[in-house]
Design a protein around this nucleic acid. Structure first.
Length: 826
RNA sequence: GCCGAAGUGGCGGAAUAGGCAGACGCGCACGACUCAAAAUCGUGUUCCCUACGGGAAUGAGGGUUCGAUUCCCUCCUUCGGCACCA
């Protein structure tokens, strides 16, 4: 006797154990089948899987399962991004070693992940903090170094005083320039740090050909890189005849340059400063250095500056123009020096007005007879004036060579050798060094004689020492270790010291999709045979918050490795889809402090994983997300239970089995195939909410068909079979249970082929067509689906309601859209 | 300021070639079952009106069209990103 009540706890445990024992989700190379690499972003092992993980992973899993049923050999791996600050910060508090804590957390999260019933291939699990993993993170660093793409430089870098480490530019967020992780405003520190030359790939990173990524992500990356076309121009200093290179997007306004501004940190400031101005310049420099970037960056701040007493020579006309320093010029963009054209630049205009500097207009606006200095800078189109050889050239608002005036001056500058066409980016090289312990070591050694050199590759990995002291000093705990940093120079064998900073964890996650291919491979970062079969990633799913971080780093990494000869193709991930966010019931972001966190473990205990999965797919558009609704999940729970009842208890139907009319059977079959068509399409398009609603609709139809005596008919059996197959990716446990135990079908439903739509069955044979009169629906007529225009027309004219609304008049126009609608114009 | 996304019932949302707005679900109301409640099942549920009929309605206004949630223009609001970037 079967248990008639739905008991998800025992069903789910039973099948998870069996799938595991049978290695049902093991993915191995199979050249006879097309492959599909479905990747979802790996979690940081915080110790608890939250509802956001479920929201990202279970629909991704459902789609991977769908692809598998479609005949693809699907790889859907999982792992842990296990290095990082939280474990180390916790260690500072309670002394528990990050490795120990991380292992415990992973152990717990593996269990939670298994409770999802996802098709993860655990044999391919990769953990970035394992030496067998970070050995290759180090190895990649060395490959970048050898290719000239990793370098060390002293520069003012962003430092989070709370996390006690430097951050990459991408990890500094918002108006107040706070740390992406902890929210603390960052400060500047002058430090020698390792960088990757990401800017070398700026132009290529702006191209997205051949990848199907959301416009949103492409826009974010494009804005982040912020390519700016213009020219670089060489000015000479009067004192010392030094070259001063400036970048400008408006080289055509060179004749209007009436002064020059250096950033206070510019290297030539001391050279050009006159003895009389020295004191004032020094004072301004000190004051600017004391101000944070935030203060300096305040948009509405009044501009300040100091005259250096020095002059520069304008290369186009030999004009002698004063050099000022001002903090509105930033050392971090362009060359840290600008030519100031107050007539045609708002900032320069404000500065010139304040310090009474000359303003020379060089663009005559359209429709005006004379170029005059107005109340603000003129940045529109017109004709060049006061500009020597450029006079009379039209100016538009285009950037770069698309603007005739800019094209002309660039040619001229290049011919004279005083400037050239140039492109600038806001994008910076990737700062890799972190002053922390719990990260992949940077495998570099410093010797007083031979400088920096990589650790020989056969000596990798450089492993983290276990006996370290946790102190929040702002320096790497590795530096404070008594012996770890002492080593020998790989060139001369003499005494040398190791790099004690560790790598940004985004380095680890830039290649995890490659480690999944062969997580225990020890002859390289991945087994080439696996690479050739599985790569590139076909679908990648995860949050949009990584648009300018992980997703940009990964693209850079792949392109750099392609050029080094390690990877193939131009992009690592062909298709990207982002899920939205599950908010708390109060419509706020979930957080412990708000007390609005929804714990998936509790939901699984109460409803079972299948219901949680179904609700997460159903309750919102996946790419949008929505606030959690703890009453809403009851709807999904009801659906699952009603499906259970429909399959396990067909006898309680009032209609007697097998007595259904031909029409009932035909209608059932039509609904089944129409649903199959929609579900198939929606799975392709990541539209999970309508998959579940279509399945709910079909279930409602099946209940009606059951009442009408459909149970026992061939159509009913087909409906049941197709229903479970469509349901299997969404609710894998109940689908398996009903498939094997109640329908007596061969195990496993997850190895079945996705059903094929019978188009003929899906077709309607009688349709109801709305009739519009002057744009308003006045009646509906029922006609055969393939009725001709003439037939439809006569059916319409026969309608009483139509005749009533026509009031005896002949319609001026009759539009018949076959199979859709009839529109009459009176 | 610049760039992007989004505005549809009380709520989440559907409408995927410009063709019946509100599928599916939540909530709510009423009914059945029950001593009662829960669960379950059934019916109804955009708004307005003089209500077996009619009107309005997809952020606002305009346009194209026989016909617009869908296409075009101008706004408004919300969210996200960037911002003294030369």
């Amino acid at each position: 006797m079967k248990d008639l009540s739905y008991n998800p706890g025992s069903i789910e445990k039973k099948w998870q154990a069996k799938w595991d024992a049978d290695q049902l989700y093991r993915s191995v190379i199979d050249n006879s089948r097309p492959k599909h690499y479905a990747l979802t972003m790996l979690p940081y092992p915080s110790g608890d899987l939250h509802i956001g993980h479920w929201y990202a992973m279970t629909p991704s899993d459902a789609r991977a399962r769908f692809k598998r049923m479609q005949g693809y050999n699907v790889l859907f791996p999982m792992g842990f991004d296990a290095f990082g600050l939280p474990a180390e910060n916790a260690a500072i508090k309670d002394g528990v070693h990050p490795m120990k804590r991380t292992r415990q957390n992973i152990e717990r999260m593996r269990k939670q992940l298994r409770s999802m019933g996802a098709m993860f291939d655990w044999e391919r699990e990769a953990v970035s903090s394992d030496p067998e993993y970070y050995r290759w993170t180090e190895w990649f660093f060395i490959q970048l170094y050898k290719a000239g793409l990793a370098y060390r430089k002293m520069s003012p870098v962003d430092f989070c005083p709370h996390c006690n480490t430097t951050l990459a530019r991408e990890q500094v967020w918002g108006d107040d320039r706070h740390c992406e992780r902890c929210g603390t405003p960052v400060i500047k520190k002058d430090l020698e740090q390792w960088f990757f030359k990401a800017t070398q790939y700026a132009d290529e990173l702006l191209r997205f050909e051949g990848i199907d990524w959301p416009e949103r992500v492409k826009t974010l990356q494009t804005n982040w890189i912020d390519r700016s076309e213009g020219a670089s121009v060489i000015f000479k200093t009067e004192a010392g005849n030094h070259d001063v290179e400036i970048f400008t997007t408006r080289p055509d306004t060179l004749w209007g340059a009436t002064f020059m501004v250096f950033a206070p940190e510019h290297s030539l400031v001391d050279e050009v400063t006159s003895p009389e101005q020295k004191a004032a310049v020094e004072e301004y420099k000190v004051q600017a250095a004391r101000q944070s970037d935030i203060q300096r960056g305040a948009v509405d701040k009044e501009k300040t500056g100091v005259f250096t007493g020095g002059y520069a020579i304008n290369p186009v006309n030999g004009a002698r123009i004063p050099i000022w320093i001002a903090d509105y010029v930033l050392m971090s963009y362009g060359t840290g020096a600008i030519m100031a054209v107050p007539a045609h630049d708002e900032r320069d205009f404000a500065f010139a007005k304040k310090y009474d500097l000359p303003i020379i207009p060089v663009i005559l606006p359209e429709g005006q007879s004379e170029a005059v200095v107005g109340d603000e800078a003129y940045i529109g189109a017109g004709v060049m004036v006061n500009s020597g050889m450029l006079d009379g050239t039209p100016v538009n608002t285009e950037k770069g060579r698309k603007n005739p005036s800019i094209a002309k001056i660039i040619d001229w500058l290049e011919e004279k050798g005083v400037g050239k066409e140039s492109v600038n980016y806001r994008y910076r090289d990737w700062l890799i060094s972190r002053q922390r312990y719990w990260g992949s070591p940077i495998p570099m050694v410093h010797c007083d004689i031979h400088g920096w050199n990589p650790v020989p590759e056969d000596q990798l990995p450089v492993t983290l020492p276990e006996d370290v002291e946790w102190k929040p000093t702002g320096e790497s705990p590795l530096k404070l270790h008594p012996t770890w940093k002492n080593t020998t120079c790989p060139i001369c064998g003499g005494p040398a010291t190791r790099e004690t900073d560790t790598m940004d964890t985004f380095m680890c996650s830039s290649w995890y999709h490659l480690r999944y291919l062969s997580p225990h491979y020890d002859k390289g970062p991945f087994d080439e045979e696996e690479y050739n079969y599985w790569m590139p990633v076909d679908t990648y799913t995860g949050g949009i918050e990584h648009a300018t971080m992980h997703l940009l780093y990964t693209r850079f990494f792949h392109k750099a490795m392609r050029d080094i000869g390690i990877t193939e193709g131009h992009e690592p991930m062909l298709q990207l889809r982002n899920q939205g966010m599950v908010l708390g019931e109060d419509n706020e972001k979930m957080s412990k402090s708000r007390g609005n966190v929804i714990a998936p473990d509790i939901l699984v205990d109460k409803y079972g994983a299948d219901t949680v999965r179904a609700y997460l797919m159903f309750f919102a558009r996946w790419d949008m997300g929505a606030p959690w609704d703890s009453q809403g999940i009851e709807g999904s729970a009801r659906w699952i239970r009603r499906v259970w009842t429909l399959f396990t208890d067909p006898q309680n139907a009032s209609g007697s089995a097998g007595t259904a009319s031909d029409e009932t059977k035909r209608n059932l079959r039509r609904k089944v195939h129409q649903t199959l068509k929609r579900v198939t399409r929606d799975f392709e398009n990541f539209e999970f909410n309508t998959i579940v609603s279509s399945l709910m609709e079909l279930m409602n139809e099946m209940y009606k068909a059951r009442e009408a005596g459909a149970v026992g008919t061939d159509e009913w059996k087909e409906a049941q079979e197709i229903y479970l197959k469509m349901m299997a990716p969404v609710a894998p446990h109940i689908a398996e249970e009903l498939w094997v135990d109640y329908m007596g079908k061969p195990y496993s439903i997850h190895q079945q082929q996705w059903p094929v739509v019978d188009e003929a069955a899906a077709k309607e044979d009688v349709i109801e067509i709305p009739v519009q009169i002057n744009g308003k629906v006045r009646d509906r007529v029922t006609v055969a689906a393939d009725a001709s225009e003439a037939d439809i027309k006569s059916a319409v004219m026969a309608s009483e309601a139509v005749q009533k609304h026509l009031e005896g008049k002949e319609p001026k126009k009759v539009i018949v859209v076959k199979g859709k609608l009839v529109s009459l114009v009176v």
